[in-house]
Computed example of a mutant assay.
Amino acid sequence: MTIRDVATRAGVSPATVSRVFSQPETVAPGTRQRVLTAAEELRYAPNPVARSLARRRTGNLGIVVPDIANSFSAMIIKAAQQEARHAEYALFVTASEELVDDEERQARALAPQVDGLLLTSPQASDACLRELADIVPVVVTNRLLDSVPAVLTESAQATGHAVEHLHALGHREVAYLAGPDGYSNQSRTSGLQAACARLGLEPVVLGPFPARFSSGVRAADLVLAAGVTAVVAFNDDIAAGLLTRFADRGVRVPEQISVVGHDDTALAEMVTPRLTTVHIPAAAAGATATQLLIRYVRGDDSGVRRYELPSELIVRGSTGPVTARST
C-alpha cells in the first residue's frame, strides 16, 4: 500500500497523510484520526527513511571509543548497542586509536549523520566537545565538562583498596603502569598515591602507556628492572601483557611478583593465573550513557546530568604474599 491509497481511503490529500506521519501536530485531530484508521485498515507503514528525513531525524546514534580491540571498549559498545536497539536506533561505531586528532575528526564526521553522539573517555579539547554539543546531543563517559552530560566510573577508592591489599600481603615496593592521560588515569593515580601515602609507601610510576596488551609486554622488563614486588596496571590488557612477558622470562606470578589490573574484563578470567583486578562497571556505564543520550535526543533534559558508578576490588590468583624469593 502507498500513501495515495491511504489518502483515497481517508478522503484527504497525500500531503495530509504525509503530515500526519511527519508533523502530526499540524493536522486537525479528526482528520488525523481518519488517516491513522485508514492506514491501519490498509496495513500501511511509512517508509522509515523518508519518515526520519521528514522529522530531521536519522534514527542513528554514534559512539567513538579509544580502541575497538580494547576489551573495555568492547563491553561499552555491546551495552550501548543493546540500549540503542531497544530504543529502535542503529549504532554507528568508530575508534580514535587513542589519537586526539583522529578522535576529533571522527566525531565531527559522525555528528551530522546521527541524532546523538556518545564519546567514551574522550581526550578532545573542551572547545571541540562544546562545538560538537552545539551540533548534536553529546554524552561523555569518564570526562568532566560542566556543559556536557557525563557518566563517570569512579575508581580512586577501589585502586586504594588494591594498594591496601598488596600492603597486607607484605609488599612494600609497588609500581604503577599509567595509562593515557584523562579522567580514568587521574582517578587511579590519585587513589594509588593517597593509599601509598597513608601506608608509607613510595610507588614507582612508569608510563604513560597506550591501554593495550603490547604495552604490558613492553613494560614488563621495566617493572623487573625497578625491583618492585608488585605492580598495578592501568587496565587488564596491560596486565595481561605483563603476565605473558613474565612467563617468557621465567618470572612466576604471584610467587615472585604480584599483578593487579583494572576493568575486570573477560580477559581477567582467561589469563593464568586469573587476574586480581579492580572491577569497573563498563557495561553499566555504556548502558547508562546510552540511556542518557537517548533521553537528550528525545528532548528530555530535566533529569540527572551526571552519574557516578562505583568500582570494587576483585581478588584472584595473580596476587600473593611476599616470599623470600620475591625480595
Rank of each mutant, 00 (worst) to 15 (best):
P321F: 03
R19M: 08
P321K: 03
P66W: 03
D181I: 08
A220K: 01
D300M: 01
A124P: 02
L267I: 10
L224C: 06
P46M: 13
Q157P: 01
R43P: 01
P203G: 04
G227Y: 04
V138E: 09
R4M: 05
S302W: 06
G182Y: 04
Q23T: 14
E312Y: 09
V17R: 00
V260E: 10
E41T: 04
A162M: 07
L91C: 10
G30D: 12
P48T: 15
P48D: 09
F213Y: 15
R298H: 14
E97N: 11
L152P: 04
V6Y: 10
R56I: 06
V253G: 07
A7W: 11
L192V: 03
H86Y: 10
L169K: 03
A284M: 05
P48R: 14
I238V: 14
L61N: 00
S258A: 14
P180N: 13
A219E: 12
D221V: 13
R218V: 10
Y44S: 04
G30N: 05
F92T: 03
V322G: 02
A289V: 08
V20Q: 02
S18Y: 00
Q256H: 03
F209E: 09
A168T: 12
V93L: 15
A7Q: 10
R316N: 12
E308R: 11
T323I: 07
Q82C: 06
L169I: 07
Q193R: 09
R108D: 11
P321H: 02
A225G: 06
L99S: 10
T276M: 09
D248S: 12
S73L: 04
R325Y: 15
R218P: 00
E25R: 01
L166P: 00
D300T: 05
T31R: 06
A109C: 00
T290K: 01
P208I: 11
G59N: 06
A38F: 03
Q23P: 00
T31D: 00
F213P: 00
S71Y: 13
A90N: 14
S125I: 05
R198V: 02
T319F: 07
N60G: 11
P14S: 12
A239D: 10
L117Y: 12
S22F: 01
S52C: 09
Q123S: 12
V49N: 13
R51P: 05
E40A: 15
S155V: 09
T58Y: 11
V217N: 01
H167Y: 15
V204P: 01
Q291W: 03
F72H: 13
P254I: 09
V251Y: 08
G59V: 01
A162C: 01
I280H: 06
E97C: 02
R130C: 06
D300P: 01
V20D: 11
T288A: 15
E25A: 15
R298T: 11
T277G: 08
D181F: 05
G317E: 15
H167I: 11
L132W: 08
V93N: 08
K78Q: 14
D301Y: 09
L118Y: 07
S22Y: 04
N142F: 01
R325E: 15
E269V: 08
P254A: 10
V148E: 02
V278H: 03
S190I: 12
G59D: 01
L132R: 04
